[in-house]
């Protein structure tokens, strides 16, 4: 939720916001390079690559000739492959991602290893993000683990084959596109509630997928279960914007008012108050809900 709605306070620090605006407002500098320079440089590089490739081919041929009667070794071929002339730098061309990520989250940290060429999972403080379509081996000290996809959580057992969004087979799972069946984890008194960051992430995922009411519910849960955390500050602002967007200015006012009450000295409070005033109504609030007078 980094993109503020227009004329509303940003959840980021006002000074960082000001820097970003300054960055965006920088004028384009004059370009003095000429297309002739570019053509000349491209031509030079092209011929250098051609000669480099030719040289590499020669090195490979000589290496093969030299080792043809010896025990097989790939050392010279590896050397040729590492030769910067033989291998001109290849620019990474990003591919289009086709799905959301998946986050296994057992109570103990799992080790996740990509299999069969699956993408390396990205780590963050919430867990490990594996990529849909990829196959992974999971090593965990527990028989079961929680998997959350786009903010929804399901419990899967490593001991049985469960086909939902994640196909679990003993110590590995395959992320499958297209969920058909969901099950929620059973409430367990030993398991603590979701962290503020988890709730914020789930709320954002819900927002991204267009489930605005779900996002509101998660943000309210965040505000109520983690009243003073840093994620709650941004959460309150996001909640107010969402309520306004959903046509509930009274509730938006309550979220802004709660922000001002809880964080009176925060740098964002003046702009929050301004946004609150622009709503044009100020019902009495009990927490996040307006109460009738």
């Amino acid at each position: 939720m980094t993109q503020p709605f227009s004329s509303e306070p940003s959840p980021r620090h006002p000074r960082l916001d000001a820097m970003i605006r300054a960055v965006r407002a920088q004028p384009a500098p004059p370009v003095t390079v000429q297309v002739e320079d570019i053509r000349a440089a491209a031509s030079t590089r092209s011929s250098r690559r051609w000669w480099g490739a030719l040289a590499a081919a020669a090195v490979v041929a000589v290496s093969l000739w030299a080792v043809r009667d010896r025990p097989t070794t790939s050392a010279s071929l590896v050397a040729a492959a590492d030769d910067p002339i033989a291998q001109p730098p290849v620019e990474r061309v990003p591919e289009v991602a086709d799905a959301a990520a998946l986050r296994p989250r057992p109570s103990s940290s799992p080790s996740i290893e990509p299999l069969e060429g699956a993408d390396e999972p990205a780590s963050n403080e919430d867990g490990v993000m594996a990529v849909i379509g990829g196959r992974y081996r999971v090593q965990t000290t527990e028989a079961a683990m929680q998997v959350s996809v786009a903010g929804r959580v399901l419990e899967v057992s490593a001991a049985s084959d469960v086909v939902v969004d994640a196909r679990v087979e003993h110590s590995s799972f395959t992320v499958v596109k297209g969920a058909a069946r969901w099950s929620k984890p059973e409430a367990s008194p030993q398991v603590p509630g979701p962290s503020a960051k988890q709730l914020a992430t789930q709320a954002e995922a819900a927002l991204l997928s267009g489930r605005l009411e779900e996002s509101v519910r998660l943000l309210r849960q965040l505000v109520q279960s983690h009243p003073r955390g840093p994620a709650t500050k941004a959460g309150l602002i996001d909640l107010a914007r969402l309520e306004k967007r959903l046509g509930r200015p009274g509730r938006a006012h309550c979220a802004y008012a709660l922000f001002s009450k809880r964080f009176p000295s925060d740098a964002r409070t003046p702009s929050v108050r301004q946004a609150d005033q622009s709503l044009g109504q100020a019902p009495r609030c009990r927490g996040l809900r307006p109460v009738s007078k």
Partner: peptide, 17 residues
């Protein structure tokens, strides 16, 4: 997401981080 070659949720997380 298309430009960076990572899923949308990863882009979002990384930008916030």
């Amino acid at each position: 997401s298309a430009e960076l070659g990572v899923p949308i949720s990863t882009v979002s997380y990384r930008a916030r981080r």
